[in-house]
Simulated scan of single mutants.
Amino acid sequence: MSRASRCGCRTSRSRRRQSWRRSARSHGSDGSGGGPVTRTAWARAGWIGAVVAALGVGAVAGRATFVPPRAAAEDVPVATFTVVEGTIGQTLSLPVTARWGTTPVPAPATAGTVTSIDVEQGRQVSAGDVLYEVDLRPAVVAQGTVPAFRDLGRDARGEDVAQVQRFLVAGGYLAGEAGGRFDARTVTAVKAWQRALGVLQTGVGAAGDLVFVPSLPARVFLTGDVVVGAILTPGTATVAVVDAAPRFTMSLGGTTQPGVVPVTGQRVEIEPEPGADPWVAVVSGSTQTEAGGVVLDLAAADGGPVCGAECDLVPVTGKDTTFPGSVLLSDLVTGPSVPPAALGTGPDGSRFVVTPDGGHVPVTVTAVDASRAIVDGLTVGDVVKLFADAS
């Protein structure tokens, strides 16, 4: 065979191979032409299968990883409560107002200009203390019920003279009894007192020298007319005596709900200071206000001051002082207490609690509020399930 023939055969075979490859690429490479499948197609199919298998394994593994195991019922702890002593009673919290009342004393026949104030408002004074000065002359407090309405000199008689004599006897200026006649020994005693006071010794008791109050010692307020520079005239009230104890009241607005208005005799506790023992009072009466409210008067059960021996804790200012207070609307009940959730109810309405081992203990509820129940049938320290009905 010639070289040309051999070259022609090779060329023909080469052309057939190229044609076959083109046919394979156009029919078999995507699996849709029905032609032979190439190695590339098999590789792709294998890769896709591996991905699908991996996803399946991952889903199974994920479910095994993220689904928590269920705890056995017996592993759940039982909620319990230890019985304690408690007290239940319906109370109404209201502020309590305390104020020292005053009573004006009979006005002396004083005339002149106030030149000094010598006593603090609300201060306790005793016989012989200087209250104020008029025209630089001291006005001294003394005990008595008759006002100093006149000057007292030799041979004057009356109860006002007896008051002056008792004052002089108590001060050590006069010996003997107060007979009610301004005699020579009384004149001498008045001069001795005037010398001690630092004023001119006349032996005559001027009308403005003494201010009589019913009892001493006493807390006093000077009236608004007694200020330095004010001009006093006979009959001007200068002093008011503070009451022996402050008045305690509680005020209720007109919108107070029916059924929660305290009545006479109900107990009231007043907190004088944080953490201190309360002052105990009772409602002693009530007064209707023009606005439709009610003012409750309080008094000590024993008839003494509400503040007892601690009335110094109420400032003597002539103004109201407010303290926290609470009214006991229903009697206090004390005993073993449990949360209401610890109470179970039987078919007949009876109440019970459940012990940690499942036993039922019948109880009688004597008092209950939103957070506690006082029961009979248990002892302080007993342990019960917290949720009886859930057992």
Rank of each mutant, 00 (worst) to 15 (best):
A301L: 10
S350L: 01
A300I: 12
L329I: 01
G344L: 00
V316P: 12
A300F: 08
C307G: 14
P305V: 10
S330E: 11
T321D: 05
D312Q: 14
V306H: 11
G346Q: 04
L332N: 12
S337K: 00
A299F: 01
V316Y: 09
A301Q: 13
V314I: 14
A309L: 10
V314L: 05
D320P: 07
D331P: 06
G335R: 02
L298W: 09
V314D: 12
T321P: 01
A309V: 13
P315W: 14
G325W: 10
T334K: 05
V333A: 04
S350Y: 00
D320K: 15
V338K: 03
G325K: 07
G344I: 01
P339Y: 09
D348S: 07
S350N: 02
P340H: 07
A301V: 09
D348N: 10
L343E: 03
G344F: 00
L332T: 02
T317S: 15
G335H: 02
S330P: 01
D312W: 15
P340S: 07
D297R: 14
L298E: 04
G344W: 00
L343P: 01
A300L: 08
G335D: 02
S326A: 15
L329T: 05
P324N: 13
L329H: 07
C311Y: 14
L343M: 04
D348W: 02
S337M: 03
L328A: 09
G346P: 01
D312L: 08
T334L: 02
L329C: 04
F323C: 06
L328V: 09
L298N: 04
L298V: 13
V316Q: 10
P347W: 00
F323D: 03
L343G: 05
L329M: 12
G303I: 10
F323W: 10
T334D: 00
S350G: 09
T321F: 09
D302G: 14
V333D: 07
A299Q: 05
P315D: 14
L332I: 00
G346W: 03
A300W: 08
P336N: 04
G349M: 01
C311V: 13
D348V: 02
A341G: 07
A300D: 12
F323T: 06
G303Y: 12
A342G: 11
A342E: 03
A309M: 08
E310I: 05
C311L: 10
D320N: 15
A301H: 10
G344E: 03
S337H: 02
A342P: 09
A309F: 12
S326R: 15
S326T: 07
P347Y: 02
T345G: 04
L328I: 04
L343I: 13
G344N: 02
V306M: 08
V333F: 04
E310D: 15
G335E: 01
V316L: 09
D297K: 11
P340F: 03
S326K: 14
P336V: 03
D331F: 03
G335Y: 00
S350T: 06
T317A: 09
T334C: 04
G335I: 00
P305N: 07
T334P: 01
V314F: 12
A342K: 06
V338I: 15
D348Y: 03
L313W: 11
D297Y: 07
S326Y: 09
S337G: 06
C311G: 11
V338S: 03
V338H: 11
